[in-house]
Amino acid sequence: MEWIVFFETWIWLGFAATGFAILFNVPPRTLWVIFIMGALGGTVKLICLKLGMNIILSSLMGALLIGFLSIRAAHLRHSPPFVFAIPAVIPMVPGAFTYRMMLGIIHLTGENDHAVFLQLLQETVDNGLKAFFVLSALSLGVSAPMLLSRNKSIKETKPNKFLNKLFDSKKASD
C-alpha cells in the first residue's frame, strides 16, 4: 500500500514539473527528462522528510540530485543544464510557506489584540524564514555542480568514462 501511494506522488510530482516546463516553453526533446527529474527530486525530498530530516535539508538533498542529473541531461539532450534544473525544482518551491507568510502579513496589518498579534507574528516569521531558507537550499543545490566544477561551461567538462560508455552503448543499441 505504501508503494502505491509513493508511485502516485511520483506521477503528480512529474506532472507539476512538466506543466511548468511547458509554461517556460522548453524544447520538446527535454520534456520527458524534466518529468523524470522532477519526480525523482521530489521523491528524494519526501524520503528525507520521512527519515526525519527537516524541510530545508530535505529540499537541499532533492535539489542536489536534480542539479547533478541536469549536468548529465545537458550532455545527453544538448541544452544548458538549468533548462532542466529550474522546471524540475519548481514543485519543491515553498509555495505553501510563502502563501501562509503573505496571509500572515495581511492579517497582521488588521490585528489589534496584543496577544493574538504576537502569536500571529511568530507564525509569520516562522513561515517566512522557512520559505527563504528552502529557496536558498534549492538554488544552492541546483548550482552546486557549477560551483564544484569552478564555473566552467558544462560542455567543457568531460563526463566521466563510465557514463560515456553507457551513453555510447545506448546510442549503438538505438
Binding site: 502516485e8 506522488t9 503528480w12 510530482l13 506532472f15 507539476a16 514539473a17 512538466t18 506543466g19 511548468f20 511547458i22 509554461l23 521530489g42 514543485p91 509555495g95 505553501a96
Partner: peptide
C-alpha cells in the same frame, strides 16, 4: 491544460 494539470498535481501533493 498542462499548467492546469500541474495545479491539480500540486493540490494532490498537498
Amino acid at each position: 491544460l498542462m499548467v492546469a494539470l500541474a495545479g491539480a498535481s500540486f493540490c494532490r501533493i498537498f
